[in-house]
Design a protein around this nucleic acid. Structure first.
Lengths: 205, 205
DNA sequence: GTCTATAAAATGATAGAC
DNA sequence: GTCTATCATTTTATAGAC
């Protein structure tokens, strides 16, 4: 088994354990048990448990950015039809919420990894980079949605995007605590209304 | 030293360690070192490390609810003057944000304890109770603010309160990642604007 | 490359002297 | 009640056989 493959398998196993049992439970032994390997094989592929965790954080956060970007891109593809801005933004937020609902364990793992990373000076930047990628993705959706519906934003789209990301973060933690769609839906609706405030018909469109 | 006092001292020490070094680092030994006690004294006061953590979670979350309630009540006291609704809500949110900024370690500890609690079936309810207390506090502020400024809400105040709490949660995580006031202020402003949408002059006032 | 065996340290918990 | 000394287990990591 080539080292690269073993590393991937261990990263997969670590991700699985973290999602199922939490970061606290992701000891080297728990990870190799999950991967069906011996303890020594672990240390052949990785220098240390800390090194593995560094890679786990990086991979999980980068993967999540890809997922979210895809979900948002999917929602933006609704721009084909005769859809209006409120529906478009609502659909984008629904897509995000649906992704969280579909795999809460993964989302909880991400939050735990955030806190793990924020405690490690070497990893804290990864969290910030993740959020900045979300900001960019959200700004992209807002820009595309406005363009597709003949509207424009009355505030800098970067600021609106940060607002949206802040809100989705709150929606995520709320979902993880209550797992209650009712609780989410109202906030989702108000979020859309809150953003729409800052849109107006685009005279150039 | 009476048991009750020793328990308090250990809870204090545990809270200190968690805020400074994280939940992961809060081993029994680290806690007694912080408290200046022997290991055996710990087990004289608490059955187990798990039992201590149960009490830590409970105490920290309850304390935080008290703090937030006080901060919001302080903001609501601005209702003396001739202040308008936007300023009132802005002040309340500012009070919340200032509290987070003033003691980020504490806030980070709370988030870690949330995740710790959500992994323990016995403790998960404490997190939900905390959020419900926030909802109630936020609803109280919204109601008081509207009454004091001759306005009323066009949506159920409970829903608006949940929206506010969701948003403050997002603001908190954003602050912990970036520690950047700029990043927060825009979201704060949009949040106020978002809520104001659902207010109107109260004809009965 | 892969495994068993083992080291070295940390952790939760207790026994027993005082 | 409080402490030192110790146990039992777990954890990260490595040595060394194959």
């Amino acid at each position: 088994m080539p080292v690269a493959e073993r590393r991937q398998a261990l990263l997969d196993a670590a991700t699985t354990v973290i999602a199922r049992d939490g970061v606290r439970a992701a000891s080297t032994r728990a990870i190799v048990r999950e991967a069906g390997m011996s303890l020594a094989s672990f240390h052949y592929a990785f220098e240390s448990h800390t090194e593995l965790m560094r890679h786990v954080v990086e991979r999980v956060l980068v993967d999540e950015v890809h997922s979210v970007t895809e979900v948002l891109a999917g929602a933006a593809d609704l721009t084909d039809g005769q859809v209006m801005l409120p529906e478009l933004l609502g659909a984008a937020l629904d897509g995000f919420v649906a992704a969280v609902e579909a795999d809460p364990a993964r989302e909880q793992a991400i939050l735990e990894l955030h806190q793990y990373a924020l405690r490690e000076p070497e990893l804290a930047d990864l969290v910030r980079a993740e959020y900045e990628a979300y900001d960019e993705a959200a700004a992209g959706v807002l820009t595309a949605a406005a363009a597709a519906t003949g509207t424009r934003w009355t505030r800098p789209v970067e600021e609106l995007a940060r607002y949206v990301v802040t809100l989705t973060d709150g929606l995520t933690t709320s979902w993880l605590s209550f797992r209650d769609p009712e609780r989410i839906s109202a906030a989702r609706e108000y979020a859309v209304a809150g953003i729409l405030q800052f849109s107006e018909p685009d005279p150039d469109a």
